[in-house]
Design a protein around this nucleic acid. Structure first.
Lengths: 149, 149
DNA sequence: ATAAAGTCTATTTGCTAAGTAGGGTAATGA
DNA sequence: TCATTACCCTACTTAGCAAATAGACTTTAT
């Protein structure tokens, strides 16, 4: 399961992506629109700024805004930066690798071998979804739903 | 990431699977062979017994043994029983579904839609790996490694 | 009987997620 | 300039839970 923080970060980024190149968005607006706890959101946006995905402007007319194009931000990297590894075991990850104290020889560990495969599959899946993809998906879901009524 | 408990359970089950129909195995033997903390392992085996995967025999010559054929036990179900959901968000799971307080309309949530797809993919992958598969994989990995020397 | 082996209940330790509080500081525009 | 707006920063709280340990108890084979 993802951390709340990760989930909130994704919602916040989606909001900013929808307003890409439309000027800064207030923290309070994002918090309200996405129903996120404001103070918590502040911390998340600060992280995203450190990561170089967003920037902020102080004073009247200020707020946060995306500085990387939505099609260049993929979900895998966002999840990784907040939640950490995608793999299910430390010995089955790439970026967060840690050897496993149980195994005599990791290269003979069937569990690791299989979970590595899964990790690669998951990584591949998430790496190929950008914020822009999500926004477009939103629109098409909207269409489908409205056609129902 | 999986809980230690889940990882240990998988190792313990693999050990029992290797000894399927060869009589009970002592907790201490499993603990030693798989390098697992004995007391913790006790609790895990008790859980597995409740789940109906293993049985135990008390007294001299006792121990634990698998009562379901290794090819009938898949990793997805083991992971689920210890770790819980496979999906990354409560709203993107099947067995542990919980609605998400952020969304006005879940059916229009692009994130959920995408994470559901991932969940299905993960589930499919793990459901098709049995303890027997892992044991066979072990053997083939063993072969590959020994050929290296 | 008695040693072997699983069973049960309780407790510990420490970490971390999730969120809160509140004052500080910087930028803006009137 | 100066008040306001809005982000920035440090600290704290609360609760839950993972991971493991301790020790006494019960059952069974010989």
């Amino acid at each position: 399961m993802l951390l709340k923080k990760t989930q909130y970060a994704l919602y916040a980024l989606l909001n900013l992506a929808r307003n890409y190149k439309k000027g800064p968005v207030l923290i309070s607006i994002i918090a309200e629109e996405e129903k996120l706890p404001k103070k918590f959101l502040e911390a998340i946006l600060a992280d995203l700024k450190t990561q170089g995905l967003v920037n902020s402007k102080k004073g009247k007319g200020g707020g946060y805004y995306l500085i990387v194009p939505p099609e260049k931000i993929d979900i895998a990297s966002i999840i990784r930066s907040f939640d950490g590894a995608l793999g299910l075991l430390p010995c089955a990850t790439i970026n967060y690798y840690e050897s496993c104290s149980q195994c005599k020889d990791e290269n003979k560990c069937a569990l690791r071998s299989v979970l590595r495969e899964l990790r690669d599959q998951t990584d591949h899946f998430l790496k190929n979804i950008s914020l822009l993809d999500l926004i477009e998906k939103e629109k098409s879901l909207e269409m489908i739903e409205s056609r129902r009524s």
